[in-house]
């Protein structure tokens, strides 16, 4: 069984924001909300590195662990999704998440949060796959169509990889080998609990 993962190869990421725009375009995310963003370290100085970050769809996702209403579920291949009918917008997941993924787009006066929104790995949510309801509430469901997340599929340099963890690792390690450098797998260990060199890691 596949285990879906994201990896952003910092050696290839050029901070072109294609992933951010592809996500917003594909999922019709409103102005002011980002499911994905690109962060740059040492901006403008030697050592500058950029990485694209969204929900990493963690193994033992901390968001699910702290959710008081248990609105999270995980698909068999490891995609972490949630049900907005149950979500109460408490924001615990936001504090638990090491990647800052949960967003709260439905802002109202006096500090009341709306439902949490985050990257779905382009897998929609509980409503019928590719229905209008699913699209409007959760965004596109590319997985149901046999496609992968739009951000990775459109990445300008194929820095952002999304797919089965073993295949992702395979591509990435080939690149590392070619570069004869050390792997620089930002967030991988944190999200999936194991380094990239461990083959056949548990999901």
């Amino acid at each position: 069984m596949a285990r879906m993962k994201f990896l952003c190869d910092a050696e290839r990421c050029i901070e072109c924001n294609a992933c951010v725009v592809a996500c917003n375009n594909e999922n019709d995310v409103p102005w002011g909300i980002n499911r994905r963003r690109v962060l740059t370290l040492n901006d403008g100085e030697p050592g500058e590195k950029s990485i694209s970050v969204a929900c990493m769809h963690c193994t033992d996702a901390p968001c699910a662990a702290v959710c008081p209403v248990d609105c999270f579920y995980t698909t068999t291949d490891g995609i972490v999704l949630h049900d907005k009918d149950i979500c109460i917008g408490c924001g615990y997941c936001f504090y638990a998440c090491p990647f800052g993924a949960p967003q709260f787009p439905e802002q109202e006066a006096f500090g009341v949060r709306g439902k949490m929104d985050k990257c779905t790995f382009c897998a929609g949510g509980p409503p019928e796959d590719n229905s209008v309801e699913e699209y409007e509430r959760y965004g596109a469901n590319r997985i149901a169509e046999g496609k992968l997340p739009a951000c990775a599929e459109m990445c300008s340099t194929k820095a952002l990889l999304a797919g089965d963890g073993e295949l992702v690792a395979d591509i990435y390690l080939t690149r590392v080998l070619k570069r004869s450098g050390r792997p620089d797998t930002w967030g991988w260990q944190k999200a999936y609990g194991a380094g990239l060199t461990v083959s056949g890691e548990a999901s």
Partner: peptide
């Protein structure tokens, strides 16, 4: 406790898994 996502069943099928794997090969 939420509604069952129909995607979960689909992902159980081998064909679906193969399709996604092939897609990865083509895209990444």
């Amino acid at each position: 406790k939420g509604e069952q996502d129909p995607l979960l069943d689909k992902l159980e099928h081998r064909e679906m898994q193969d399709e996604l794997e092939q897609r990865f090969d083509r895209t990444a």
